[in-house]
Write a protein that binds this DNA or RNA. Structure first.
Lengths: 148, 148
DNA sequence: GGCATTTGGTACGATATCGAACTTTATTGT
DNA sequence: ACAATAAAGTTCGATATCGTACCAAATGCC
């Protein structure tokens, strides 16, 4: 293994950080007032993956500390976009359910953002994205496993 | 263009966000007390790219609002890791210079983090990273151009 | 040259993020 | 069964992030 390769890994995480920052800005410009990517991400996840998950599972999915997830969920609940019920299988725990209003907000956000995504297609083709996503997903798994 | 492709773009930015979050956590665990990725990123950039840049150029490089950069630079200056001087070419502006202490902190951080990077090499080979980075860089440029 | 506009940077306030400590309920070990 | 430990979530305090409004210097325009 060559030391010369290491800077490449730094460059990788540097690009990821910048892209995250940039996409956050772009996406939030399309989200309704006060809704952040963290909120949208959770709503989307609840529909794409599974309704009724626990806060901890959500925190792990997004790799954020559980206290950050508590805060994000509180924001969503205050806007009545989710409901939190006690977990019938574990009294310490909660289950997060998306509401009708939550679905509506999410669907509308998807539509609004899709316009920009479609504009991107001409410049960065779907097949490139299709090749990129699994690579990033695998990288994520490796990093996650190495985390502790 | 097919609508079926759009979810792929959402997945892409979702992965990027999660990876950013995850790498932030991993990196900050190796940085000295109180030093964040935002700080390290600037120090590293000043050495890798160029010393003496203006705050605005740095903000653009990292795609953060200029007020965020002001705050990050203030933190670095308070720790004497950078120096800010007036820009001789423009009295409104400043130039950011890294100090000896700044170089030391950056070099040590690089060394400390490199150990983890090397551990990654076995699981995610350098040639894959080498293919990934230019793709991400191009994506960044496209997104940046579309930003306004 | 002088006024309008733009540009670089900061001050301030609102909110997001997150680590440490805490509460409550589950689980484990004996 | 019960004490010890672990796990889920929240509270709290510190600080990062960022949008708005602002100041000062530069640039454009006539």
């Amino acid at each position: 293994m060559r030391d010369a390769d290491i800077p490449l890994y730094f460059a990788l995480f540097n690009e990821i950080g910048i892209l995250s920052q940039l996409s956050r800005t772009v996406l939030e410009a399309r989200l309704p007032e006060g809704l952040l990517v963290s909120h949208f991400g959770v709503l989307n996840h609840l529909i794409r993956v599974q309704d009724g998950q626990t806060p901890l599972r959500l925190a792990r999915a997004f790799q954020v500390p559980k206290t950050s997830m508590t805060h994000t969920l509180a924001g969503l609940e205050k806007r009545a976009l989710i409901e939190m019920r006690v977990n019938p299988e574990d009294a310490r725990s909660k289950c997060v359910w998306i509401t009708e209003a939550g679905r509506d907000v999410r669907d509308r956000a998807i539509r609004d953002i899709s316009a920009d995504m479609e504009a991107m297609v001409g410049e960065f083709a779907p097949d490139r994205v299709a090749r990129l996503v699994p690579e990033l997903a695998e990288l994520r798994k490796i990093l996650d496993a190495a985390r502790d």
